[in-house]
């Protein structure tokens, strides 16, 4: 797994308190990992902080799964 994916996974574990094994490519933050809408806002902020990027609101709305997040960050970083 890429370095970016590892770092994203670490953030998700910290913020959502889920087991690492549940964080699969297609895992939805809300449907599978127990996040609510506020959690997803905070996750995006944590991604921005970790990777030194800015994720616009319209792009953030499309980041629904772990895979979406890794893909967006890989392209942006």
């Amino acid at each position: 797994m890429s370095d970016i994916a590892d770092r994203v996974k670490k953030i998700v574990v910290e913020h959502l308190g889920v087991e690492e094994g549940k964080i699969t490519e297609g895992a939805s933050f809300i449907d599978d990992l127990g996040a609510d809408s506020l959690d997803t806002v905070e996750l995006v902020m944590a991604f921005e902080e970790e990777f030194g990027i800015e994720i616009p609101d319209d792009a953030a709305e499309n980041i629904q799964t772990f895979g979406d997040a890794v893909k967006f960050i890989t392209e942006a970083a």
Binding site: L38, E42, M45, E54
Partner: peptide
Amino acid sequence: PRRVSPFFIP
């Protein structure tokens, strides 16, 4: 403002 947490108010 982009660093203000969504959990700040609640």
